[in-house]
Amino acid sequence: MSVLVFIETNEGEIKSSSLEAVCYAKSINENVVAIMAGEASSKELDILGKYGVTKVFYNESEALANDSQGLAEFIFSGVEKEGADLIIIARSSLADSIAPKLAIKAKASIATNVVDLPSSQSPLTVKRGVFTGKAFATVSLPEGRKVLTLAKNAVGLKESPSSCSSEKLGFSEVASPKVKRLSVEKATGSILLPEADKVVSAGRGLKGPENWEMIEELANTLGAATACSKPVSDMEWRPHHEHVGQTGIKVSPSLYIAIGISGAIQHLAGVNSSKTIVVINKDAEAPFFKSADYGIVGDAFEVVPKLTEAIKRVV
């Protein structure tokens, strides 16, 4: 068996979710080959080697970055070159666009949003999130080439040092890509919500967008991403890409702190893969407390600054 892992970078750094994908691959097969768009310098080789990658295909062409069509073709050439049976990709907005194109190109079966290590190798059997976070399904993939896309935290990071070599892989540059990127608006430097290990989320209980400062301060103290409930994004208090829930982003951080969010079933669907949930709400009857590990019944404007100070004392 041969396993190929797609490595994604953000602002020049290999994403930790891609390293999780490496660890996932390592648990299935001793030999793990990776493929990335961008420069594979000694910095990248060191990190990939630390988690057990033995070889990385790369191409630093600018034309590849962020083009899902081009990347699907590039990864497929790596699949053919390596004779890979299994391709593992950590979920992201880019990966979600690459995966279906790659599956068709590679004539592979595919399971997306996988949340745990395989329960069987033959047939490959994995657990994936379904019903928008409300349930899990155990699925088997047929014989032949396979693609898996992984949810955040599907597996923990584990070092497994080996020496990693690099090999430049050519690709045929498409003269005019089918989809042209005209511009990008992206928050830089902030922690990206879908990949965040900690999330501080707030809802209508905050009363208005001007009150988010204390949420941001708590998030900064924790090194957390900020998020919000659907009503908050609908009212445009916060940008749409912060909306967590059934029709928004699904998160699976180790810590989710919900402030002034009642906990409607649609919101819970987006967060119930979180490891630990803390709920702060002045309404003791808020349904969210039933899905929480820790709770404080109290006014957010009083509790949040105190909590921020308390965290500053220990971290």
Binding site: N66, S92, S93, L94, K178, V179, K180, R181, L182, S183, V184, E185, K186, A187, S190, L192, L193, P194, E195, P239, H240, H241
Partner: peptide
Amino acid sequence: QKEIEGGKELLEAT
């Protein structure tokens, strides 16, 4: 307009 992590992209296609 496509949503990406932390923002959006403006795209064009035929």
